[in-house]
């Protein structure tokens, strides 16, 4: 790993002031540090945001659950409040990677990174999340732009993620057996009025499957999407799963999610 300068920011203001074109925020470091070790990324400055008190913690109101960006996966999975308000969100967190990753990785880091097979982005889409940054509020639907690409500007810091509490929801992941990231993960959330079917792992970026959402909004039963033949032309294909297999898994996992709701 190449040498870098380590900074620990006291607050959001200091963090964004320290940011430059050759810096990165350091949350759990579960993505940043391995990429630096492998020489895939080099930064002059790492700005540690873990000591910014405001960025950690979980708040539940009547309608929403708000999670600080630097909150660790393990904290989300163990939170009684989250378990009560949105149980599927806590079980999603429990299924991320392994204990070591969950003990360091953060929700903000996960969504800022926007890995096409990460779990949290699907929760953001399914649960109509609002991403609070130090500058503005961004709707989840407008946040995830493409593979490893988000609406964040350089130096913009995610402070919290606010999830809408659904009537019912479930997240079903078919994990990559090696990394345990999602080969396909489907987050189904039934809100008053409509149903979101957020899919991760299948394409270059998380998306809301309109066809299934529509069918399930009409009739919230797995039979209404059974046998659906999804277009696989834009789906990922790699040594772990072909596009056709992913297309099939999207429907299967969605059905499982509906059944589990």
């Amino acid at each position: 790993m190449k040498d870098f300068n380590y900074h620990s920011a006291k607050d959001s203001k200091e963090a964004s002031k320290l940011a430059s074109s050759s810096s990165a925020f350091l949350a759990g470091g579960m993505t940043t540090i391995p990429s630096m070790k492998l020489g895939l990324a080099t930064y002059k400055d790492l700005i540690d945001i873990k000591n910014i008190k405001k960025l950690s913690g979980i708040k539940v109101s009547g309608k929403s659950v708000t999670i600080g960006a630097a909150t660790k996966h393990v904290e989300v999975s163990n939170s009684k409040d989250v378990k009560k308000a949105i149980p599927s969100l806590s079980s999603l967190a429990e299924g991320i990677g392994d204990p070591q990753v969950r003990n360091r990785g953060t929700i903000g880091g996960s969504i800022a990174n926007n890995d096409p097979s990460a779990d949290y982005p699907s929760a953001c889409i399914a649960l109509n999340a609002t991403i609070h940054t130090n500058e503005r509020k961004i709707e989840a639907a407008k946040f995830f732009k493409g593979m490893f690409e988000t609406a964040l500007k350089k130096g913009e810091l995610i402070e919290a993620i606010e999830f809408q509490i659904p009537e019912k929801s479930s997240y079903q992941k078919h994990p990559n057996p090696a990394s345990r990231y999602a080969i396909v993960g489907v987050y189904v959330a039934k809100h008053k009025g409509d149903v979101n079917v957020a899919v991760t792992g299948a394409k270059s970026c998380v998306y809301n499957d309109k066809e299934m959402s529509k069918a399930l909004t009409g009739n919230f039963s797995s039979s209404s999407i059974d046998g659906m033949d999804l277009d696989s032309s834009e789906m990922n294909s790699d040594m772990h799963a072909s596009a056709d297999f992913r297309a099939s898994l999207v429907v299967t996992q969605a059905k499982k999610a509906v059944d589990a709701c």
């Binding site: 990559n176 057996p177 090696a178 990394s179 990231y181 040594m239 772990h240």
Partner: peptide, 22 residues
């Protein structure tokens, strides 16, 4: 689970635990 896979140019496709399933 386990499989060591090379592509036709001889690059090891399963060169880390992200791809080689222990």
């Amino acid at each position: 689970y386990e499989n060591a896979e090379y592509d036709e140019t001889g690059q090891l496709m399963t060169g880390s635990y992200m791809d080689y399933t222990m």
